[in-house]
Nucleic acid binder design. Structure first.
Lengths: 152, 152
DNA sequence: CACCATTATTTAGTGCACTAACTGTTAGTG
DNA sequence: CACTAACAGTTAGTGCACTAAATAATGGTG
């Protein structure tokens, strides 16, 4: 067991990485909101669309893995996306347990509008792309660390 | 207008900083869950407690600023924390608009239990403290960038 | 082939975040 | 002092995240 030194007052709000993570996540999502609103999408729905633009007929299970989301979260989201006409939901004939999600023409067409979004977000953030890439790398390590099954 | 180069396929899910931010935030909060559960706290409630341990009788408005939260979010949260006996809510006599939130003895006592939490989280993450500090610094820059009132 | 564990998805219930609208209090202005 | 704008919190409604339980289909195994 190595010794961890967190300095004095490890409960100080402003030092909490978890607090900074929450705020940063909410703040960045807030940047997307006005950009996504014209498409009728929320940020989580936008992530679903990104996953579908990469591979279109795919199962809920597959989407859950790609998005690291619970099926219980995706289930109602997919219904909303179906309701606004961006995708279809149907059972897999060869395995009726599986729900196959597929983009509609409208869903595919949306990609054109979406392509400008990353540039606009980076622009509004006003940070260097290199710094964002570094942030992404650190976040990936955090995600990998939390995904670990607590190896001794 | 400087040119932004996001490489090819800027819509690739795995490259999205916003996606990594969401997952990292949720994953880290998930680390706290089993540690907070014995105290009957959720992670957002834990942040409220951190804010109150720093300064105890304080207004909702003040808490909102410290936590970067909406009053509409804090209002029901504070009622829940009052219901489980960690704080009291009362109006300020000299300004009846203001709600004064104050820790109870139980709320103050909880701090002792909470003090081990940061160490356990860092331990479970298995990352260097230095790297976490660097992450905190980058996140702070992101937060500052999003807080900017879009200066020309 | 019946039984049973596994798998894929859905439903229900709690809590948080966001927006907009509402209530009540205070402070300024004519 | 009456009027009104600003301020502090609350309420209502939508959507997401998490847990646990339910439903339905599939794949062994005896």
């Amino acid at each position: 067991m190595r010794q961890i030194d967190l300095g004095e007052d490890p409960l100080k709000l402003d030092r909490q990485v978890c607090f900074a993570l929450s705020i940063a996540s909410r703040s960045v999502i807030a940047l997307y909101r006005p950009l996504l609103e014209p498409m009728g999408l929320t940020h989580p729905q936008y992530l679903v669309m990104l996953a579908l633009w990469e591979s279109s007929p795919r199962s809920v299970r597959d989407l859950c893995q790609a998005l690291r989301a619970e099926p219980a979260t995706l289930s109602p989201m997919l219904k909303r996306l179906e309701a606004i006409g961006y995708l279809t939901r149907r059972r897999n004939r060869s395995d009726e347990r599986e729900l196959v999600v597929e983009l509609t023409a409208a869903g595919r067409a949306l990609r054109q509008d979406a392509e400008k979004i990353p540039y606009r977000v980076v622009e509004e953030l006003g940070m260097e792309v290199a710094e964002l890439q570094e942030l992404h790398a650190v976040l990936s390590r955090v995600i990998a660390a939390t995904a670990k099954p607590a190896v001794e």
